[in-house]
């Protein structure tokens, strides 16, 4: 028998999670501002010595294969691009969540980070290859954070995975989301949204976290972005990179065609790019973390 999570309980869980650093928060705010420029990003990173060191370590990791070492922060950031800098900042602050073993989903240590990184790349590519006007950096960052709620509720789902899969197969649950809600009274998007509110994440990112499995319910203003991450999430799972037993056990909202113009060949191309970029990024993050 699983224990239900009450709204008070979820706040208690969230209170045990470290807050985002001031610099990570400022970077997220900057990413969602359509008028921001790279100098704003540089200025935020400059105020954070640890983040500065990490950014320089990543850009000089073997994965990027630079011949000459980059020592200036401006150059490092313009080389890596805004999304990677934001990714480094979030990855460091929320490492406790990203690295958590998702026991409730039978997911290994680091599975959440790997899935989120793949989703981030795939969401960026969906936006780029469908000629959307959405900022690819924003799609990347939202993809990186979309499943953060799983780290909050996973422990409450321990021992349920095999039963849930059986019940989905027997149509007793429509998908994994319905199972989470039924078993513990909270699904992972809602749990993640509660964290987004406490962390004061920018509205479009909070909407992605809340509605990435039910994009039609997102507010019209952010729906295209939410659909892009919805597809990015599915592409990551199709690439074999889920977070455990729940992989591929969520409904694809095929109404995405109203918001995202994705040609079948584009999907194959996205899958190719995701695999290549993922290997490079994963390597650079892990080398820099050593």
């Amino acid at each position: 028998m699983t224990e239900k999570i009450t709204p008070e309980e979820i706040q208690k869980i969230i209170s045990s999670v470290p807050l985002l650093s001031a610099s990570a928060n400022q970077l997220l705010q900057a990413t969602t501002d359509p008028d921001h420029d790279l100098m704003q990003i540089v200025n935020v990173v400059k105020t954070d010595a640890t983040l500065t060191a990490r950014v320089l370590k990543v850009v000089n990791s073997a994965a990027f294969g630079l011949i000459n070492e980059i020592t200036s922060l401006d150059r490092a950031i313009s080389y890596l691009g805004e999304r990677l800098v934001v990714g480094i900042a979030i990855g460091d602050c929320a490492a406790q969540l990203f690295d958590k073993e998702l026991k409730g989903y039978e997911g290994e240590h680091g599975a959440l980070w790997r899935h989120d990184l793949r989703t981030a790349i795939a969401s960026r590519e969906v936006v780029t290859q469908s000629n959307s006007t959405i900022n690819p950096d924003l799609a990347f960052t939202a993809g990186l954070l979309h499943d953060i709620g799983k780290a909050l509720i996973s422990d409450y789902l321990q021992g349920t995975a095999s039963d849930v899969l059986q019940k989905i197969e027997n149509n007793e649950f429509s998908d994994y989301l319905a199972a989470e809600e039924e078993l513990i009274g909270f699904d992972h998007p809602r749990a993640g949204y509660e964290l987004a509110l406490v962390w004061k994440l920018p509205e479009p990112i909070a909407e992605v976290i809340r509605f990435h499995h039910t994009p039609a319910e997102a507010s019209e203003e952010f729906r295209e972005l939410v659909y892009a991450v919805h597809l990015g999430d599915n592409i990551a799972m199709m690439g074999g990179c889920g977070t455990g037993a729940d992989s591929m056990q969520y409904m694809l909202d095929t109404n995405y065609t109203q918001y995202v113009d994705l040609h079948p060949n584009a999907l194959a191309n996205i899958m190719l790019v995701v695999n290549e970029d993922y290997e490079k990024l994963e390597r650079s993050f892990s080398e820099a973390g050593e």
Partner: peptide, 14 residues
């Protein structure tokens, strides 16, 4: 060759 749930033709890569 798995597929996501409730998929359409585009996503039936598997």
């Amino acid at each position: 060759g798995a597929n996501v749930m409730d998929t359409n033709d585009t996503f039936q890569i598997g």
